[in-house]
């Protein structure tokens, strides 16, 4: 097998979600020959390429597509890039992460290649047999891809966690520049990137956080979400590293308490942290779809019948503000 990984990078490093794609490639077969495709422009791209070159022992080459046209995550040039690289390389598999970038790009590229991709793979049973959640994660479907090469898939990064020692210091794969002459034709130019407004760029993406503290409509205001932030920080400092983040239900986002990128659920972020604490979250199936694989789930809700308690390891039927107040007082500042 040979696998092309469409990787994302940030600040000169391959993103953790793309490192998960490497784990998935290894799960297809240990004899996999992996090519990592990175695109963009500027020095950060080339630094990320160096990172990719030593990111996994199975990586046999890093393909760098350096162009202003790829500087932003526009699907049109990227799909052409993927189409062109696949035609040249003839890979048996193509993997992207189920990020907003991967979800936007992969189906478009698959249509250009005339193959059906598999969305949101959570387990690989055989090189062409996969498990994926459907119906908001209430059903797991096993599918077999029977079409032509390549077998394309997006993976849930929470299901393929990279081992911390995956970096191979000894083996460094060669880095090759992709020929971009195809970029002058076709759909390029029909879309332009304007801007990205982001409220929180310092903290890790919700999908990779190890502690997630989530609030529902019961939080009542944007102000009160600050209490959850304080709690998340304290929990991080007390136990599980600083990889913590606040999440929210759809209702809380709709009410304008927090930005959309904090939404956990079927169509929002999928998280599987070590610790998930839900305050004032009732537990709609669409929300449970986004967090049911968390290791430890704590739920605090006034309503003893809230469905969230059916998936929680520890529940407190209580006023969330009283519980928050007490937790903030009782959790030590440092370990």
């Amino acid at each position: 097998a040979s696998t092309l990984i469409v990787a994302e990078h940030e600040g000169g490093f391959v993103k953790p979600s793309s490192l998960s794609a490497l784990v998935a490639a290894e799960a297809i077969t240990k004899e996999n020959r992996i090519s990592v495709l990175l695109g963009g422009s500027g020095p950060a791209l080339h630094k990320a390429a160096d990172h990719a070159a030593s990111s996994h022992p199975l990586v046999s080459e890093v393909l760098v597509a350096d162009s202003e046209a790829l500087a932003h995550p526009l699907a049109e040039p990227w799909a052409q890039l993927l189409h062109s690289v696949q035609q040249k390389g003839g890979y048996s598999h193509v993997i992207a992460s189920s990020t907003s970038f991967g979800k936007n790009l992969l189906p478009r590229a698959a249509a250009l290649l005339d193959v059906s991709p598999v969305t949101d793979v959570t387990a690989i049973k055989e090189p062409r047999v996969f498990v994926r959640p459907i119906y908001a994660g209430n059903v797991l479907c096993t599918v077999k891809y029977t079409g032509e090469d390549p077998c394309m898939m997006s993976i849930r990064s929470t299901s393929f966690s990279p081992a911390t020692e995956a970096m191979s210091e000894t083996k460094v794969a060669p880095i090759t520049q992709v020929d971009l002459s195809f970029l002058s034709e076709g759909t390029i130019g029909k879309s332009t990137w304007v801007n990205l407004t982001s409220q929180d760029t310092e903290r890790p993406d919700l999908a990779n956080a190890r502690v997630v503290v989530t609030g529902g409509r019961g939080l009542k205001s944007a102000e009160n979400f600050k209490l959850l932030e304080q709690l998340a920080e304290k929990l991080g400092a007390a136990g599980l590293s600083f990889y913590q983040k606040v999440g929210a239900t759809r209702a809380a986002v709709d009410a304008g308490y927090v930005p959309n990128d904090l939404q956990v659920g079927q169509t929002g972020k999928i998280v599987a942290p070590e610790l998930y604490m839900a305050f004032g979250v009732s537990g709609a199936i669409q929300h449970l779809a986004g967090m049911r694989d968390s290791k430890v789930i704590v739920a605090v809700n006034k309503d003893a019948d809230a469905p969230i308690f059916q998936v929680a390891d520890y529940g407190l039927v209580a006023d969330l503000f009283e519980v928050l107040d007490e937790l903030l007082k009782k959790i030590p500042d440092k370990k």
Binding site: T142, R292, D313, Y314, L316
Partner: peptide
Amino acid sequence: SDMEAIEVNEPPKRKAGVILSSVDELLDKL
């Protein structure tokens, strides 16, 4: 079609959790 659905399954159930009576108990469990 180039895809075959082989089977569908219910996801593994989480084992039943416990309702606690106080924040102290929660901190102790965690």
